[in-house]
Every structure is written in structure tokens, then in C-alpha cells.
Design a protein around this nucleic acid. Structure first.
Length: 278
DNA sequence: ATGCGGACCTGTTAGC
DNA sequence: TGCTAACAGGTCCGCA
């Protein structure tokens, strides 16, 4: 669930329950997330100064420092009335007053809640993150520089958070399809104009998903969360053997860099490059 | 420096 | 139907 668009919509959804409020209490039911949960005692009754996203991290900034929250592979937030039934995997709970509790549910426990005194971005997990995909820094010329002489395939390159944040497996697949680039292409040999296409594709796919994520978030935040959303928009992800929406050729499915990888063998040719498919 | 594979977990699905 | 294995939206870390 937590691709960048969902993290963004999660952030928007929990903001009304947090912004301008004080953290009056919290409960840690299971501290064993990716790293032990860190919520310092000094945060009690401290106001949240700012709420923002960096990559897939949600940052709750206080005067004294910031809580870094990552949803990992299976994390989600729910806003529930005080006294609501605790669900399996509700590991951490925040009380910002107003009779509402924010519960972090994470079955696989790959998520994290970490404390960074002072400036959030100085945390070791944030310090080396690449630019935001929807910001100006993320450009074709930037990618060209970063790709220089590198022999890695373009898909894992695109998913490398030190190159650009927030492009998970689904969107890496989708963006490469839209850009007409085979996922296994050696990134060092991709020409500037194809990086232009890729930039546009990444931006488009992420912003479209954010638009739809809003719908997801409402379910997400309401007491009765409901799954199911933009699967119908996916052009290649998890569509192995199904016809390409552009040319009808069967979508290929392979493993690349240990991750499920999907592409159209015609629209994303081995030699040369395909055209933008929108 | 770069690239690769393993690791961390549980829940769901595919296959026998 | 039931059991088991494979796989999953992330990403860090250690090793070659």
C-alpha cells in the first residue's frame, strides 16, 4: 500500500487530526518494528510544529526534533475514536486530543517510528536521499549525470532512493512502460532524450496516483477502512501474459534485481527505445 | 564506488 | 478441502 502517492494521501488525511495540536500521549503495543520504536518522553504535551513528507517518510516536527514514520511494506494509519477496538498489528498509537486516536497498523513490521533531535533531514536514513520526483531537481540532466558509466539496469536505478525518492516497484514498472524503456536497459547507455521521457512518465504516473489516492485515503482514515483502488489503471504491473493496452502483445513478467518486473516486449524494445505511450 | 543477495516479518495466493 | 511453498507495495546492510 505505501507507495509515495499513498504516503502523500495518508499525510493529507492525518493532517487535520495533528496540525496545531499537542501530542498528549501514546501507546506502544509492539516496539519491534524494523527498528525499535523511538518516542522520547520529552514529547509529552509538545505541539506539532509542522507535518510533511520526505520520500516515503512522514515527518512530525516538534520544537525539539522530529518523529520519522515509515510505513514499510504493509503499514497504514487509521484515525479512530478513543475506545475503538484495537486490531491485530495496531503497534503504535498517538493521542493528539479531540477524542481521536491515530493508530499505526503494520502486519509485516517493516515500518518504523524513529526520533531525530533537531533537524529531521540530518537523520542518517534521510541524509542521503535523492530529490523528490515531483520537484524541479529531478530532471533529465540530473539523471544523466547520476547514470554516467553505471552498469546497473534502469529499473533498480530508478528505485534507488539515493537517485530519486518514492518510486516503488509498481511505479517503476509503469513509468518505464509509459516512457518506452526496457527495464533491463543499462542505465549508463540511456540517452538524454529518453531520460526526458522518463521524467515525464514518472511525474505523470505519480501525480495521477496521488489524485486517486485521495479516494483511498478516505477509506484509510475512516473507521471502516476499505482496500481496492487503482488496479484498473495499471498498464503492465502484475499483468504477465495479458495483452498490452497499446499494442496487444502479451506482457512479459521477469525478475530483475529481485523484484517482479513487467513490460511490453514491443512497446519497450530490447534494442533502441519505444515511443511515449500516451 | 558499485552491484548483488540476504535479511527483516506476516498474510495471501498458487500449486499440489 | 488442506497443506506447503512462493511471493508481496520497502530498503538497509554486509560482502565481493
Amino acid at each position: 500500500m505505501p507507495e509515495l502517492p499513498e504516503v502523500e494521501t495518508t499525510l493529507r488525511g492525518i493532517t487535520p487530526f495533528i496540525e496545531g495540536r499537542e501530542l498528549i500521549g501514546w501507546t506502544i503495543r509492539n516496539s519491534a518494528l524494523r527498528w525499535p520504536v523511538e518516542i522520547p518522553v520529552l514529547l509529552k504535551n509538545q505541539p506539532v510544529v509542522r507535518l510533511r513528507r520526505r520520500g516515503k517518510y512522514i515527518l512530525l516536527e516538534f520544537h525539539s526534533g522530529a518523529l520519522l514514520i515509515h510505513l514499510g511494506m504493509s503499514g497504514s494509519f487509521r484515525c479512530v475514536p478513543r475506545g475503538a477496538m484495537v486490531l491485530t498489528h495496531d503497534h503504535v498509537e498517538f493521542d493528539f486530543g479531540g477524542g481521536i486516536l491515530l493508530r499505526l497498523n503494520d502486519p509485516r513490521r517493516f515500518g518504523s517510528v524513529l526520533w531525530q533531535p533537531g533537524e529531521a533531514d540530518t537523520h542518517r536514513l534521510l541524509a542521503h536521499l535523492g530529490p523528490e520526483p515531483l520537484g524541479n531537481e529531478f530532471s533529465a540532466s540530473y539523471l544523466k549525470v547520476r547514470a554516467h558509466h553505471r552498469k546497473v539496469a534502469i529499473k533498480p536505478f530508478l528505485m534507488d532512493s539515493s537517485v530519486v525518492v518514492g518510486v516503488g516497484n509498481i511505479y517503476a514498472n509503469e513509468a518505464l512502460f509509459l516512457a518506452g524503456i526496457r527495464p533491463a536497459r543499462i542505465v549508463g547507455r540511456v540517452p538524454l532524450h529518453k531520460f526526458e521521457d522518463l521524467i515525464h512518465a514518472v511525474r505523470r504516473v505519480l501525480s495521477e496516483a496521488i489524485t486517486q489516492g485521495g479516494t483511498t485515503l478516505r477509506d484509510f482514515v475512516s473507521p471502516e477502512g476499505r482496500p481496492g483502488y487503482f488496479q484498473q489503471r495499471l498498464k503492465v504491473y502484475d499483468r504477465k501474459g495479458e495483452p498490452c493496452t497499446v499494442c496487444g502483445e502479451a506482457v512479459e513478467g521477469v525478475v530483475l534485481g529481485g523484484r517482479g518486473t513487467f513490460y511490453c516486449p514491443v512497446c519497450q524494445p530490447v534494442r533502441g527505445f519505444g515511443r511515449l505511450t500516451w
